Computed example of a mutant assay.
Amino acid sequence: MRDPKTPLDTDNTDQRLFDKRGVMENLAAASRSTFAGIRFVLTDMDETLTYKGRMSARTYDALERLQGAGIHVIPVTAAPAGWCDQMARMWPVDGVIGENGGLFFRRDGEHGLARRYWHGDADRENVHDRLLEIADQVRARVPSAQWADDQAFRLTTIAFARSADADANGAIVAALRAAGARTTINNLWILGWLGDYDKLAMTRRVMAENYGIDIETGRDVILYCGELDQ
């Protein structure tokens, strides 16, 4: 994760949160008016809501208090559909954007779940089959490539475990791209997917379709917590 003492490019951020060096201040130091208009909190999950893979009771309580105050909280993550299903059903959140933008799950009633995917119903099976073909190609080109241990719970992405060998990771990324997949590497996985989307694109769609919010013109009502990757 980024060192909080390292200056950020703050051209598109609220200058009230930064000191004269461009270093982010402690949020507790901000005046109440800074966040008075916030209606949505979009947040990364791994090492943002969690620390070393675990979520604390204090963090869960904060999510519940935000929900109780009428703030819509939406995790935006590369985590697999299986994890997102559980989060959307049981966490005090409004919904979850998962698999790097491939899906949006939202609680529907007491026990149901509304599922929205980037690809339409007519395309999803073909996309899934093509991703499995690409995975076979990657593993043929990079014999050391290993599935991520959560691959069984994924619907719209393929994920490989990160290696300590940077060259091996680079070879997996190159093989994914050569097969036509989009890619990203985060602190847990090397991801591949098909489609012209990412976390930001799905966030735009979810906010517009579910809340009538354009994230470019409505940025004063949205707070994002997490790293700046997509």
Rank of each mutant, 00 (worst) to 15 (best):
M24Y: 11
D136T: 11
Y224W: 07
R116G: 05
S31A: 15
I158W: 02
T157W: 03
I215V: 14
F105V: 10
D9A: 11
A28P: 05
M24E: 15
S56E: 11
V73Q: 07
P4M: 07
V96L: 06
Y224H: 13
V93P: 04
T183M: 08
Q146P: 02
V96W: 01
Q15A: 14
T203V: 06
M24S: 12
D220E: 15
T43W: 06
E99G: 04
T10P: 05
Y211C: 02
G192P: 02
E209R: 09
V142N: 01
M202S: 08
A175C: 03
V23A: 00
D123F: 05
V173C: 02
N126R: 15
L200K: 13
N210K: 08
G37Q: 15
D9P: 00
A28W: 12
D220F: 06
R16W: 04
L176H: 03
I185H: 01
A28Y: 12
A57R: 14
G53S: 05
A28L: 14
D198T: 01
L228F: 13
T10L: 08
V142W: 00
A57S: 15
T59G: 11
S163E: 07
A135W: 00
I213H: 00
I172P: 01
D165S: 03
I97L: 09
G212N: 10
D220K: 12
G112R: 00
D149C: 07
V76G: 05
I74G: 00
M90I: 13
R107L: 07
R204T: 09
M202E: 04
V41E: 03
N12V: 13
H119P: 03
